[in-house]
Design a protein around this nucleic acid. Structure first.
Lengths: 262, 262
DNA sequence: ATCTCGATGATTGTCAACAATGCAAGCTCT
DNA sequence: AGAGCTTGCATTGTTGACAATCATCGAGAT
């Protein structure tokens, strides 16, 4: 039961409890002839379910190890088990969910090795994206990015941690959009989410993220079309994220168990 | 029914190219009741089916646009439709198969834009991999790579085109193995296959690939641990692959129809 | 007290039947 | 003949039931 409450984050943005009627909620306060739902039933596509779970993980609403039961999910999204299963399968391929035979799905708990691999991969891809953005950035893009950073500052002022995490990841995806390479964006989306899992697993408490200032500096370099500087700042930014973690302690923890009982 | 013959290449498990693990970890030591097999037949896992189709596409045995009917596949692999469907879903996420509602699955026909994005992404990732390999390559690795290139030369001497394609892609995945980054290897596996599709769609006939010599030069640089040179050679190698294609002509073809009849 | 073993409920894995959809051939009417 | 409609077939989409498996918990033995 507690688990179902926890997962209720996934249901529609409105803070409603887990609705027992899976489909066709048709919220009352809306006008009768609203433009919604012209096909009778409000069907949720598999891609939507995928995206919902994916971003919930990215925003650290589902910590590593969280079990994702098929039946719960079926109720929450109002789809059949077969489709949930399909979504899990893709999420597993994306590396954000772990499937164990006859044990079902759970949010991936990344290993230290995996964490390091993710960082390396992300550095590589972000470098290319930044270089690309420096070449093709427009005034309109600059406005969008400034606006985004303003929202980040605002979220930090309000101490809205969930929003900060969301916006922080979104900034990088925005850059990927501007770079205009869908393949790289897909990879980066996956990496951002997986890195979010790493942070959730290995973060040292109390250290502020404060990444909006770093984002701001990267943007300034991009405005000047200084690709080298922007790349360098991006690398520093990503390294700073890593430096806030403690990968060694936790890795030695698992060694402890092995050595102590030998 | 001619289509079934064409797809029958999938049934024999002759060549195991990239045996990547598309799913999550499945720790072997659970082998107590591993092959229960109450049906009397050797069950193939979803991952196997995934890998088979994936590598068949990588080896250009299934050209772009090939329809993949659920029932055919069910017969070929001896699994139920539900599982085929799951596999298709993951292949679609990997970008090598395209799913259209109520139309089913077909091998992706990459657009020119997509092709360019794939090349950029691949260049990025291969650069990181090569740099990593230059640092950590061992004598044993060198032997493996030399051996592999020897097989490439042999395949070329025998004019075994299918084998050449297979080995050529495998060389890069071998480097990814040596680099030891599973995340990057997964990305590269996907990119190699998608690039294979691009080649199948846009290749200019008659131009030999002859990549084993380029592979050889890259290896020599790696033996000397000259990361810069190896990276440069790799970039040239990848550019050479692109230069053998004709992306512009085919893109203008589709424009032709629009302009001529206007 | 702790360990082993077995029963039980919860959860996942599999499948086959049924419904919905799209495609193509044939038919009708002008 | 040709445009539009209808019908039949091939294929995909969905669902629910059933089988297999795992986790939990308690009884009994050491």
């Amino acid at each position: 039961m507690a688990a179902l409450w926890r997962l209720s984050i996934l249901s529609n943005g409105a803070s409603e409890l887990n609705d027992m009627a899976p489909r066709s909620r048709s919220p009352g306060p809306r006008a009768a002839h609203d433009s919604v739902d012209h096909t009778g039933e409000n069907r949720v596509s598999d891609d939507e379910v995928f995206a919902r779970i994916h971003s919930a993980i990215a925003q650290q609403q589902l910590p590593p190890g969280t079990r994702l039961r098929e039946d719960e999910m079926r109720q929450i999204f109002g789809v059949s088990r077969a489709r949930i299963r399909n979504v899990f399968s893709r999420l597993a391929y994306a590396g954000v969910v772990t499937l164990e035979p006859n044990r079902g799905a759970s949010v991936t708990r990344p290993s230290v090795k995996e964490a390091r691999e993710i960082f390396v991969a992300r550095r590589t891809i972000e470098a290319t994206i930044v270089a690309e953005v420096a070449q093709r950035i427009t005034r309109k893009d600059v406005v969008r990015l400034r606006d985004h950073i303003a929202r980040e500052v605002d979220a930090e002022a309000r101490r809205d941690r969930a929003e900060m995490i969301r916006l922080s990841g979104e900034f990088h995806l925005l850059l990927a959009d501007i770079a205009g390479n869908a393949v790289l964006k897909k990879f980066l989306t996956e990496l951002v989410t997986r890195e979010s899992l790493v942070i959730a697993a290995y973060e040292t408490p109390g250290r502020p993220s404060c990444s909006n200032h770093e984002h701001s500096r990267i943007l300034e370099a991009l405005v000047l079309k200084d690709a080298d500087k922007a790349t360098m700042l991006m690398q520093e930014h990503l390294d700073a994220i890593v430096s806030r973690l403690d990968l060694d302690r936790n890795s030695s923890q698992s060694i402890d168990l092995a050595t102590i009982f030998s």
